[in-house]
Design a protein around this nucleic acid. Structure first.
Lengths: 334, 334
DNA sequence: TTGTACGCGTTATCAC
DNA sequence: GTGATAACGCGTACAA
């Protein structure tokens, strides 16, 4: 039933070696021979056996994408960007989600993936995550998204600068009590959270504003979390007039909380998000826009490049950010 | 460097055959021997070579998920559900997106995936889609989500019933001019769209209401599309007092359009969505809730079952729907 | 430019 | 319960 390389060789009147060379586009094959082999292969509907090919060549023919989540907005989009690039390559995309480090059901991917991929693409996960840290010892190419590590290519955005844009925007509007809706309690192993905090802190300090610990709340990067965070911020003795949320989804929750308290975003409390989520336009949310799919695409290309030439030095790409100002931010009312 | 089964055999003082049996948990192995082999393998950090194993066994050790989109809400969640189940199995998850049929860049997956997977999981794509239809000839197990096909297991929801719930709800509120925001122009090869239309139409007809072709607009399952659709519906000579959108994202767009026209959802025009998107709660949207992750999980289990026993008859699961009533729907004002 | 022949690391079929 | 050993299908030195 299934054709083998021998069937093609016999039918084309050449050796299996020639078939292999011809089909893979290797040099030193007579154009006529190559064409003939191609046609026979086509006619007999031949496809190489990946298992055999991989065993013989030593290449796994696939790369693994390791991500904490699949369904969350940011991760789904990055994944989409990756897939778009890999689609055109001849590598399989193995998907492996891992969940938050420390969570139950957290599966260390390095055991499942050992010997089965040619390289790794890791989204957002801290390098010291259990199951991720072991990957570096495999000495296979690894590309990191949103963080970096010795010897690995990496890609991301300038989170410090992004947070600065957001906070400076609020400062320019006259706000002084600017709250922060962060993700997890610090210290967190997630690089973007740390950096966005640094951007927030430094911009505040440089503007001569006080960092009030009372003006920070964790939103855990979910809508509900953002809502709870905003609600608790509003309950402070001296509530903020503006909020910088580390993600759009948390900002959405914040907007909702404001409305639930009879406050109007922009007019009563200014809110800036971070991501460029499609819904931000529809919720009239000012936000720092990052090129999410492009991050995934570039990451995939970095990995392909390293697969191509493992000796090449690691590259570190930083993608530009943008800010879209909408109705959720406005001049502070006096 | 990399350990082979022979290294383990030598070290454990047994044959490679015994190592293979012991490690795979096959019967007819002395418990003592098995334990010894296990320990040696553990100590030497041995992992089987998937390529060799696959070549020898004839099993590919992986399944392919074929989806039109990765980043869209519904698909990302289904994918997440699938991955959750496959994580625990020993199968790799190969991800392949395909885009809308007919679009440019549309890559037929059957060529890339031939001989490389043990089964397919197809999300939403019509069975006649180029690149999908060929899969059925591979006689490998296929599980279809949101559609079905001879000999394949399938899973989905009762879209007709879902649409009925939505429309009946609007009728109960006294609405008569109920518009429909559909996906693509009919006839569409996507089953859910057809069925949701049928549910809409039948419910209208049974209530003695007229189906006005002027009260249908396509929203292409995007927020922007939904917004445009609503806008065009509002421009009709005799605009609707209520709208059923085939997806939450289109409903979000519709809400936005209403607000842009100074209309308040619920009070002026009632809107029902379909999906149970998290944002629907925050936008106060009444919606038909489907168990999206569960759909993916069940689909994966159906495939695992078929892989386990290819002779078993195909199963067809239908998951229950729910409706959450919120502020976007209200009694028709007279 | 082409062909021969060996090796890749397992699994599976036998015997024992 | 265990051990030889023949596939599995392809890549690739090496020879021609």
């Amino acid at each position: 039933m299934a054709m083998t390389i021998r069937d093609i060789a016999r039918e084309a009147g050449v050796s299996t070696a020639t078939v292999s060379r011809a089909l893979r586009g290797l040099p030193n094959v007579d154009p006529v021979t190559r064409e003939k082999v191609r046609q026979v292969a086509e006619r007999l509907d031949y496809v190489v056996s990946p298992a055999a090919s991989r065993l013989a060549s030593g290449r796994a023919g696939s790369i693994a994408v390791i991500t904490p989540y699949i369904a969350r907005w940011y991760f789904a989009r990055v994944l989409s960007g990756i897939e778009g690039v890999l689609q055109a390559s001849d590598l399989d995309l193995l998907l492996s989600s891992i969940g938050d480090p420390g969570e139950t059901g957290h599966v260390p991917p390095h055991r499942k993936l050992r010997r089965r991929v040619d390289g790794f693409l890791v989204i957002s996960l801290p390098t010291e995550t259990e199951g991720v840290s072991e990957i570096f010892d495999l000495d296979q190419p690894v590309v990191l998204i949103d963080t970096d590590h010795d010897g690995c290519s990496s890609i991301g955005i300038d989170d410090v600068a992004g947070a600065r844009m957001a906070v400076q925007h609020l400062i320019n509007l006259g706000h002084e009590r600017i709250a922060l809706i962060s993700g997890r309690p610090r210290p967190t192993p997630f690089r973007p959270e740390d950096n966005r905090f640094i951007g927030y802190r430094d911009t505040m300090v440089e503007a001569g504003l006080r960092i009030d610990p009372d003006l920070e709340a964790c939103g855990h990067f979910t809508i509900e979390g953002g809502e709870r965070a905003m609600t608790s911020l509003l309950a402070r003795a001296n509530p903020p007039t503006a909020v910088f949320a580390m993600s759009d989804e948390m900002a959405f929750g914040a907007l909702r909380s404001l409305r639930a308290h009879g406050l109007e975003p922009g007019r009563d409390v200014s809110v800036v998000g971070f991501d460029g989520h499609e819904m931000s336009e529809h919720l009239d949310l000012t936000t720092v826009v990052q090129p999410v799919e492009e991050i995934g695409a570039r990451a995939a290309r970095l990995l392909l490049a390293r697969l191509d030439d493992p000796q090449a030095p690691p590259k570190h790409d930083v993608l530009p950010l943008d800010m879209v100002v909408r109705g959720s931010t406005a001049l502070r009312r006096r």
